[in-house]
Design a protein around this nucleic acid. Structure first.
Lengths: 183, 183
DNA sequence: ACCTTAACGCAATTTTTTAGCGTTAGCGGG
DNA sequence: CCCGCTAACGCTAAAAAATTGCGTTAAGGT
């Protein structure tokens, strides 16, 4: 993560945007292990030293891009009931994160020491769950506990994605939600 | 993971052992992000090209070392009852994995594409749990489900270690086991 | 004991990373 | 609006790491 930018506008911002979009473009076509800083620099039209100075190294840059990609643009879909809300969110989450690019993003995020990328990522999913919870409260439903939801639904999915010992299929996701919400 | 060694004895084996112990020694004193292949090569008394040829790159080597370190040397302690057995194992697991070195090992393992280091690591914990389960069966206790144990106890701990959003304290571990074994 | 060849050491080459230095341009103050 | 300050960039050189070719050594089988 680029330390809180002192220069927020103009060229500095343009370069950040250009580098970010270049990385996202590259991630779609070439494997993460093939990506290098000079490669990104050339496609983005900047010098490698700029990237090294600003992000430190490749993994920090990729973590920064990954976190910004996870920033929610919209609230999760409102399906009318807590159980289906949670199911819909979790199924979509699992699908995104279990993709080739999604898994690579998770790895970069947990692998970045500085910048608190991992903490930020946690916050995002926590915030999503909080939205669902408050929505349930507004409906008069008995809500779920946030930490419990992370432990019993999100954590198993992330675990199986990272260790690759099991496919987080929609059915599996729904069963996790079901067992979690059951008495 | 070094592709299944065709030469299993003699010099090749000595070099593997020397490199492994050198890496473990380095991990104790210097941070994982500071370790380089040439650094390992020098301390181990081999040329860098040997390491590159045999392991491919640094992350593969570290993943190989991490997996071999996780290979269980002994069965988990027998405390006389399933619940306490599971608690003891999980508390120790969390303590080992949440250390600086333990977390680095987890990261290297999930980060290695080839070699199936992640799968191997999964197998080890799965095998441990299986031991506890069979021990419970032999005692006539009603056993736990292995996959459920992974999802409800191991996964949350690993999640919080990797994302660093929570300390997997012994109390927290015990509460996970308690809620898992409760009706 | 001999033969085959996997695995290593050495050295040259390529690529990546780091560091110094001058220049450009964002941003605040007059 | 213009000016000064300096963060951020480009360029270049140097250092470090990764790759590759080739000759040598030593496992493991016959």
């Amino acid at each position: 993560m680029p330390r809180e930018m002192l220069r927020q506008g103009g060229r500095s911002a343009r370069i950040q945007a250009e580098v970010h979009s270049t990385v996202q473009e590259l991630l779609k076509s070439v494997d993460r292990s093939e990506i290098t800083v000079p490669m990104i620099a050339e496609k983005a039209g900047v010098t490698p030293s700029t990237i090294y100075r600003r992000w430190g190294d490749l993994s920090e840059l990729l973590a920064d891009v990954a976190v910004s990609r996870m920033r929610p643009i919209a609230d999760p879909e409102d399906t009318g009931a807590m159980a289906s809300d949670l199911e819909a969110f979790i199924v979509q989450y699992a699908e995104e994160m279990s993709s080739r690019v999604g898994r690579a993003m998770l790895l970069d995020i947990v692998g970045s020491l500085a910048g608190g990328a991992a903490a930020q990522c946690c916050q995002y999913t926590y915030h999503h769950l909080e939205t669902l919870r408050e929505r349930a409260l507004a409906r008069g439903e008995v809500p779920f506990d946030l930490d419990e939801a992370v432990d019993r639904v999100v954590a198993p999915i992330v675990y199986h994605i990272l260790f690759g010992d099991r496919d987080p299929s929609p059915d599996y996701c729904r069963s996790l939600v079901g067992k979690f919400l059951a008495p």
